[in-house]
Design a binder for these strands. Structure first.
Lengths: 141, 141
DNA sequence: CCTTTATTGATAACGGTTCTCAATAGTAAC
DNA sequence: GTTACTATTGAGAACCGTTATCAATAAAGG
């Protein structure tokens, strides 16, 4: 049983998957499945909404792309350049501005807390929400 | 304009609100609005589902109770004893086990990161998800 | 008791996501 | 290229948590 391929998202490569990847690579910030679907449509790449959901989900599972939850509970996706090194996201709750941050300190702290409490697999998902400078300014006129 | 009252959830106190509070005080872990509604029903405290949602929302706004989001995106509520001092939650993604942790280190880090990036209001919502000891054990038999 | 109006509750609506299942299209073997 | 197999797709229905609607109810104060 030789392992033929390994970097495929799924067992068969399709037009739809490439289209979704194409859009993802063009993204600089997190987008919802629906937004990605809209972007595809705008590019005349016809892909069903259900397929977008399914494919993004699979890609996120395989960690080919980054997935986070917005504070409203929406799942957001982004192709994330660096696959090495932990990094987290500082996301503006108002406008969605996303900044990637490195967090050795937080890694250490979460690891410590996790260990003390017998938890594992805590490290990868510390996304922090706040209000960015611009939005703060706007909200206090 | 004298401020008459201050610790009331709302402007008028009702049977329904007391019922919800009663259930909340009996909770030791986070529960969804629907679960709380079910608990009320079980206690023969008839309260409409919409009212449960509304009331929990208001209480959480006033920070009379703690609210978090489960990884599935559900809002979960709990009456949280200590009202003083920042604290965060370490929550098992599998079984929902919740541990309250203090995090001066994380406060400092988030503050620093926030300031560096011009963000504000980042401090209060660092809930960390992981897999607790028991669930980890189960998943690797 | 009466009036005012915050609150309630049954139900509809909503929004994001997942499911269904027949149609479509990769893939490997011929 | 053709065939057979089956993974994938897509349109729409279903789902699920939540919010909105709005008439009915019931606190609070006079």
């Amino acid at each position: 049983m030789p392992l033929k391929e390994e970097k495929k998202i799924v067992e068969r490569s399709t037009r739809q998957q490439s289209a979704i990847l194409e859009v993802l690579y063009g993204l600089d910030e997190f987008r919802s499945a629906q937004e990605i679907h809209a972007l595809l449509t705008k590019k005349n790449l016809k892909v069903g909404l259900a397929t977008v959901y399914r494919t993004l989900q699979k890609m996120a599972e395989k960690e080919d792309i980054d997935a986070i939850k917005s504070i409203e509970g929406e799942r957001l996706y982004r192709h994330c350049g660096q696959n090495d090194g932990h990094h987290h996201h500082l996301i503006c709750s108002k406008c969605g501005l996303t900044i990637t941050v490195e967090g050795p300190a937080i890694e250490n702290w979460t690891d410590k807390v996790a260990k003390e409490n017998g938890f594992s697999e805590v490290s990868h998902k510390v996304d922090i929400y706040g209000i960015c400078k611009n939005c703060k300014k706007k909200s206090k006129p």
